[in-house]
Simulated assay, not measured.
Amino acid sequence: MLRIGLFLLTNLAVLILVGIIFNIFGIGGILQDNGVDLNLNALLLLCAIFGFGGSFISLLLSKTIARISTRTQIIEQARSADEQWLIETVRELSRKAGIGMPDVGIFPMPQANAFATGWNRNNALVSVSAGLLQRFSRDEARAVIGHEIGHVANGDMVTLALIQGVVNTFVMFFARLVGFFVDRVILRNEQGLGIGYFITSIVMDIVFGFFAMMIVAWFSRRREYRADHSGATLASPQSMIAALQRLKMESDRGHEEPLPGNMKAFGIFGNMGALMATHPPLDDRILALQNFQK
């Protein structure tokens, strides 16, 4: 309920902001021509500005949001053998992948997980959970780090931001088309955009938003196979398979814990078995790597 409530408040804030912009710049007719027809070109442009704008603002803030939401502590100076090993491993694999040295952090999750994020492949963040460092062997942890560095090297953050921008644009566009249709055709309102338009638009934002999430999740699953391949290349196929098998063992025991919603797509482990899943089933990922080994 909280997530839906925040979505509604965000959508309402966008509508208010659009209204303010229209009034300030005197372009109140951008949604209408002569008060009758919807200006589709202007509407699509407006939706693209807000759709891509929101997506890229999130991308630019991704490191800060990730650090706060996971309570990641950036390692400024190694204070233990584990931290020293982690920094050296990230530096080695980053150099091998051809990217700049990322910030390195640890977040206080007893379950095994890791993530990478950042708008720039030469200014990213790679963070692992305390549980992963405690229970995974060095070879397995190295493969997981290689997987995360693979996300960075493959440009997955930017790619998913672009995809999110596209789906945001069309969610907003078609939601407002439906809202306009309900307001004008069903409710027969001819005095500007009425309450039927605004309520219907918000409802359709939610409905279309779920379908959009399925599209983004599908792309995320495809990118996950590539990151596994990168982990196998940067570390070794055997280590990457062993790391996924250990994750599966923890999952079967009910020890897994997904990352916060905004970070799931870039973790080593995510929710599985549904259209909204950001990660493919671990069995499928292991099989893909076994075939890669042959």
Rank of each mutant, 00 (worst) to 15 (best):
N154A: 14
F266D: 00
L287M: 04
F7W: 09
M214N: 03
R71C: 05
I20H: 10
F7K: 06
V144Y: 06
Q164R: 10
K63D: 05
E257I: 09
Q73K: 15
M172Y: 14
L162E: 01
L2T: 13
T278H: 00
M204D: 09
D228Y: 05
L282S: 07
A161I: 05
I202P: 08
L45F: 06
G28R: 08
D139W: 07
A161R: 03
W85G: 11
I106G: 08
K63Y: 01
L259W: 09
T159F: 06
S129L: 04
P260W: 08
I195G: 11
Q134R: 15
A212W: 01
H255F: 14
R221P: 04
S127C: 11
A274H: 15
I99C: 02
D183A: 09
L60E: 10
N113F: 08
N123T: 00
N113Y: 04
P258M: 11
F198G: 08
I286C: 08
P280F: 06
D33R: 13
E250C: 00
A66Y: 00
F136S: 11
E148C: 05
G270A: 15
G26W: 02
L38S: 01
S230I: 02
A130G: 15
L282C: 08
R221G: 07
D183E: 09
I163A: 12
F107W: 06
G209P: 05
I215K: 06
T70Q: 02
L289D: 09
Q134Y: 09
L59H: 00
P281D: 09
H229R: 14
H147M: 04
